[in-house]
């Protein structure tokens, strides 16, 4: 099984957005990280351009949070290098750090402070702090100003973190599971807030979430991290163009041998007579003919554009072998 999907597989994994490195506000080059004997990141490469939103997907334990912590400077990579705004994250000067917003559920906000106190403490540290935006976000999120943070709900604490990050008008925004504990309305508010930040101010966003639906709406680029390796990294439109989902209803008694599927087709799921296949190289030849050849005993075949969820689940199942593999 391959550790990484490359252009030969129909992906543009290593190049990320395919930009010159100097144009990237976030750059990760061959980064590996170990906790003791356990390796959680292995040779990760990608870049995020100014004004783009890079969504990072991956199952639990894939190394997403570790990667984000490296980019914020909370951890140092064991190997390789990362840069934010041209600096190693752990050595980012305060004036540049002031342009980086970070939201993560794991970061413990000072529980004894109220939101008012936390804003008063935080705002002088950011030359670009926007009090009007802070007021807007506080109202939009309906956050209590005088309640101690330790008494807030999980969702409210996330909203506080988002408020602090967005009110500083960052050039780089790193979001680790920002939708945690948020209801649909507030989630929409957050999405709009992030999108306006990206479009109005050219903020670069690296977003990691299990909420694939939201990511699909937001992201310009997508990366999929699996067991510490970046197995997909490419622009969303390329990904949409290249992936197709084929749902097949086989004739009774018919059998699909995954080993006989064409190269770059992943058997994503099988339930009874229904088989789902993820095509990773759409556009390279006549898909209709290849489908007919692959499933001669099919009763019905539906070919559709693969959603980000389809891609993520298909890749994950293929790697785990639960879908039967190829």
């Amino acid at each position: 099984m391959r550790d990484r999907w490359t252009a030969a597989d129909g992906f543009d994994a290593g190049a990320g957005v395919g930009m010159a490195e100097e144009a990237a506000t976030l750059l990760v080059r061959n980064v590996s990280h170990r906790y003791g004997a356990r390796t959680v990141l292995r040779g990760v490469d990608f870049a995020v351009a100014e004004g783009s939103l890079y969504a990072l997907l991956g199952p639990n334990g894939a190394g997403k949070t570790t990667l984000l912590r490296i980019l914020v400077g909370l951890l140092r990579p064991t190997e390789g290098e990362a840069s934010v705004l041209g600096y190693a994250p752990h050595a980012l000067p305060p004036e540049h750090r002031a342009r980086v917003g970070y939201v993560a559920e794991s970061v413990a906000l000072p529980g004894s402070m109220t939101l008012d106190a936390l804003e008063a403490f935080t705002s002088p540290l950011y030359p670009t702090w926007d009090p009007v935006r802070a007021d807007e976000l506080r109202d939009r999120f309906r956050l209590p100003r005088r309640l101690r943070i330790r008494r807030m709900s999980r969702g409210e604490r996330m909203k506080v973190a988002v408020l602090l990050a967005l009110a500083s008008r960052p050039r780089v925004l790193i979001l680790d599971e920002p939708f945690t504990g948020m209801d649909a309305v507030v989630r929409e508010d957050l999405v709009q807030g992030v999108l306006s930040s990206v479009s109005d101010e050219g903020t670069s966003v690296l977003l990691c979430s299990h909420d694939i639906g939201e990511l699909e709406r937001l992201a310009d680029h997508v990366g999929v991290l699996d067991r510490g390796r970046l197995v997909v990294s490419e622009p969303m439109d390329v990904l949409r163009a290249r992936f197709r989902q084929i749902d097949v209803l086989m004739a009774p008694g018919a059998f699909v041998d995954p080993a006989r599927l064409p190269p770059h087709w992943l058997a994503a799921a099988r339930a009874g007579r229904r088989v789902s296949v993820l095509v990773t190289d759409h556009g390279t030849d006549d898909l209709e003919a290849r489908v007919a050849e692959a499933f001669p005993l099919a009763e019905r075949v539906d070919v559709r554009r693969a959603s980000l969820r389809d891609v993520f689940v298909g890749l994950a199942r293929a790697r785990l072998g639960s879908g039967g593999g190829r």
């Binding site: 909370l74 951890l75 305060p94 750090r97 002031a98 970070y102 970061v107 413990a108």
Partner: peptide
């Protein structure tokens, strides 16, 4: 310890503080 110097959960290292 209210703002621990080490560990990945501290808030202050994410701020623009020397």
């Amino acid at each position: 310890q209210s703002s621990p110097a080490t560990g990945p959960h501290a808030h202050w290292p994410t701020l623009p503080l020397s």
